[in-house]
């Protein structure tokens, strides 16, 4: 505290010496006021304004749609949340959109909240996926698939899922997807389930632009709610971290 006072005097002096015609000026400081539980005061007026909106939302958002065995959070290169969500979308997409989907790709930035352990309410699905994004299937050639793998590695990993195990690996010669099913490694073209946002080239996914495309017009939230509805308290959702994205720094 003493130190600050001293600084204050120094400033006064500087101002006085530096420019004596100046009405003295000083910036006192910047601070962040955290609105945590120790700030108890709320505004009645604001609460009243929010209330009717809140009532409409709560009636729908508090419905429990499923259960999760663990809290899932996102990280890079892969995470339980990213793997879990893309695996769920593969399951949904295969049964509702196209039974020949090879891969699901989302962007890390698009998963906006963690999934808590225990009951999952509708509101939580909105928290994770607030965007009104829909599911799109893009068809890529083998070469284009390599560009996709490279893009995902450039981003230090993104949420990816497949019907069975898939890996992205970086070699000195470039990045590739390696599917557990041998037959998938030799296909001529691949169907990628993704969001309309990425399919439009969002977040640097120019590899998806102007490619054969099927718009399902199904909201990603709708798909997630449908898949979570299959889980129960006894058989909750479980996600795995299984080494999908293998990054060898020696190959950089």
């Amino acid at each position: 505290m003493k130190l600050f006072s001293k600084h204050f005097y120094i400033c006064l002096i500087l101002a006085a010496l530096g420019c004596n015609r100046l009405p003295y000026t000083a910036k006192v400081g910047g601070q962040l006021n955290t609105l945590d539980s120790s700030w108890k005061e709320s505004s009645k007026r604001i609460d009243n304004l929010i209330q009717p909106y809140k009532a409409q939302i709560d009636s729908q958002m508090n419905i429990v749609v499923g259960y999760s065995a663990e809290e899932l959070i996102k990280s890079r290169p892969e995470s339980a949340l990213g793997n879990g969500i893309t695996d769920l979308l593969i399951s949904y997409g295969t049964s509702h959109i196209n039974n020949d989907i090879d891969l699901c790709v989302l962007n890390y930035g698009g998963l906006r909240a963690p999934l808590p352990k225990g009951p999952i309410v509708v509101g939580r699905i909105y928290e994770i996926m607030p965007f009104d994004n829909t599911l799109v299937v893009i068809t890529l050639s083998k070469e284009q698939l390599k560009s996709l793998a490279r893009h995902i590695l450039t981003k230090s990993g993104e949420p990816i899922g497949a019907k069975r195990h898939v890996k992205i690996m970086n070699y000195k010669s470039g990045a590739i997807f390696q599917f557990e099913e041998d037959s998938l490694n030799v296909k001529k073209s691949y169907n990628i389930l993704t969001s309309n946002y990425l399919a439009d080239g969002g977040d640097g996914y120019t590899v998806f632009q102007s490619k054969p495309r099927f718009n399902s017009n199904i909201l990603i939230r709708t798909a997630l709610i449908a898949e979570f509805s299959k889980t129960t308290q006894k058989e909750p959702f479980k996600a795995v971290i299984d080494g999908r994205i293998v990054w060898d720094p020696n190959n950089e």
Binding site: T25, Q31, N33
Partner: peptide, 24 residues
């Protein structure tokens, strides 16, 4: 809520004087 305070008689001209206070 971010907050940054400026104290002044009337002007904000002397950048040096301003900014040595920012560290507070």
């Amino acid at each position: 809520l971010g907050k940054i305070d400026y104290e002044a008689d009337s002007y904000f001209e002397d950048q040096k004087a301003q900014n040595c206070m920012v560290k507070i």
